[in-house]
Design a protein around this nucleic acid. Structure first.
Lengths: 356, 356
DNA sequence: GTTTAGCACTCTATCTCTTCGAGTGCTAAC
DNA sequence: GTTAGCACTCGAAGAGATAGAGTGCTAAAC
């Protein structure tokens, strides 16, 4: 074994070239192919030496002795973080995306669905979106509405316009006074509370307090508790998953299991910090697909993180092309969802277009 | 070519045996394998002749010249409609199912979800259920709840316990009187109206009437109209879809596309008439999976069709086993959903005999 | 006329063997 | 430090060869 291997500029250039070629062709890349590239001036033999060094450093690997090199995920990581410079989208591409996702009057729900559809179509990968996360919203209203014999509907509304309801059957009917007491109590305890703060213990206490007044009220509190769980649960939509099955480099069984259970996806999306990020299946314990990569970015609503938008594909994916798309879409969605003039509370189904 | 080929009893018996064997083993069935069966007394040579005849008639086919026979979908059709006699479930099996789905006090929603889960587990196929269709239910309550500046939540509740809500933004805030007027008007016009009767024209008329009082009320009516459309739309749940992906005989791409879009499934379930039915993907244009089969039956609530329950698997599926399960579950669900004192219609053929 | 035994034939799946070529690492020369 | 040349390795792809399952047909038996 020789001494320390140094990563010089040429080696990085070669690494980038290998990744580009591999992404383009899907075949392991040999020294000869690299030497033919315009921006590489050295001979195949030199490249061979450098490639051997890059392999020793863990950036490249050989499927078998007499094959070309393939980037390792460490190689991709370096490529993405340091070597690659994705070009800007052309105006034409931007307009195309704009047309696909909708405008200010498009409901948020539809906006992110359209964005997912656009990503699916353009990238030929799977797209994943999460709903506007209601974390930063607060409970704005709780109603209990009698609808039949011992039957009540609970209505929970948040400041972000999320509405949940649930039917609840009690053992006894409530008279006006009791209903009033309950509604007041709940309003006092929940109004203005952030969705994030709602906890099981909190509801346990409320059950205790309410039961002291009237035992048979506790199912209502439990109902509200369940609704609040629904609220905290962010919805996640995976679309274009058939594209994942078309990828030869992904294990079909893993893909199938992933499509079914979406293991670890929610965490992966949640964990992402600001800006665009690329994560590899290999780097994450929970995210199930081995050779996959997730390109994800969070969109914002009125300056606050509201949800994520991402593309799932094989590790061998055209990052240069996809990253600008995801970046553009998230910023566009952030813009479309935010209110320039006032802080309007728009729910996922609010119809702002009120004229006939 | 010889003269007319006659389908005698023995040929049918052989066809049935071929289907049974094929279902059991998954391999093309040869004459020898059939001749070894206890209930077949003739020699392999005779069976060969009969199988050739069955092939000529389109009931069997050969994957290639020197392979055994496989049933065509026409063969399955004959088998299912005429030849097969599924055994009754044992009491043990019935109890097992009873435990799995719940009892009279289980909410309807949960009841059908449990039934789907049971079918998924037992059959190792996918199960599909549709919600109790609220067609026969009536609007029992409409509420309009102010929740913010010019923001209202509409709540629509049906007699069957279905609850829908929607946020709606108006151009002006309503005062107490206006809200009262609107609520009264809506209650008068919609209370007790069956979900089935709700029509676009009806709402158009209401928009006109309400606009005469106050133009900016019309978004509320439109909101209610949209909710009523939601009500009419039956919900469809596909569970255990990973089982479909495990089937070698189904095309993975088709399955994934199907899981994602559920093409044609709704129609297939809706089309079914009374009693248990088996449909093949090959027979239907819209239903997407080629070699699949759908075993479906409708359940009833108080004598009226309320929803469907079915199993989706490969055509090579153990009909003898699955059909009794689906039959039992639909009749059980029909029973559980209906009030005991009313006439209960059970079984695959309408049973006018109502005594227990 | 129907059924059966026997036999030649067909076709696939599987294995081995060979060839081909891409790509490498190493060495020696520049 | 770079390059040309060369022997070597290894997998992919193709060609037989073989085995086995199943058939269709014929002629004999019932």
């Amino acid at each position: 074994m020789k001494g320390r291997v140094i990563v010089d500029d040429r080696k990085l250039k070669i690494l980038a070239a290998v990744v580009d070629e591999y992404v383009r062709t899907g075949e392991p890349v040999g020294s000869k192919a690299i030497s033919k590239l315009d921006n590489i001036k050295v001979s195949a033999a030199t490249i061979r030496n450098d490639m051997a060094a890059l392999e020793q450093l863990g950036y490249l690997e050989q499927p078998h002795t007499s094959a070309g090199r393939v980037p390792t995920f460490k190689g991709y990581r370096l490529y993405i973080d340091e070597l690659m410079s994705p070009p800007d989208l052309s105006d034409e591409e931007k307009h195309r995306l704009d047309d696909m996702i909708g405008g200010k009057d498009t409901p948020e729900e539809l906006l992110i669905q359209n964005a997912a559809a656009a990503l699916t179509e353009i990238t030929k990968c799977a797209a994943v979106v999460t709903n506007s996360v209601p974390r930063f919203s607060v409970i704005s209203k709780v109603e209990v509405i009698p609808t039949g014999k011992r039957l009540y509907v609970i209505l929970l509304i948040t400041s972000s316009g999320n509405i949940k309801n649930k039917a609840c059957r009690l053992e006894f009917d409530l008279n006006h006074e009791q209903l009033d007491f309950f509604t007041k109590y709940i309003e006092e305890n929940l109004s203005g509370v952030s969705v994030d703060e709602l906890s099981e213990e909190m509801f346990d206490k409320m059950v205790a307090a309410v039961s002291a007044y009237m035992v048979s009220l506790s199912p209502l509190v439990k109902g509200i508790c369940e609704l609040s769980e629904d609220l905290r649960q962010q919805e996640l939509t995976l679309s274009g998953s058939e594209n994942l099955l078309k990828c030869d480099e992904l294990d079909k069984m893993e893909v199938v299991r992933f499509i079914e259970h979406k293991d670890g996806l929610s965490d992966m999306l949640e964990d992402a910090f600001s800006g665009i990020q690329v994560k590899f299946g290999a780097e994450s314990g929970s995210f199930a697909i081995g050779n996959s990569s997730l390109i994800v970015s969070k969109y914002r609503k009125d300056g606050k993180e509201a949800g994520s938008l991402g593309v799932i594909g094989p590790m061998r994916v055209d990052y240069k092309k996809i990253i600008p798309y995801v970046e553009y879409l998230t910023s566009k969605i952030s813009y479309l969802m935010s209110d320039d003039d006032e802080n309007i509370i728009t729910g996922n189904i609010v119809d702002t277009d009120t004229q006939p």
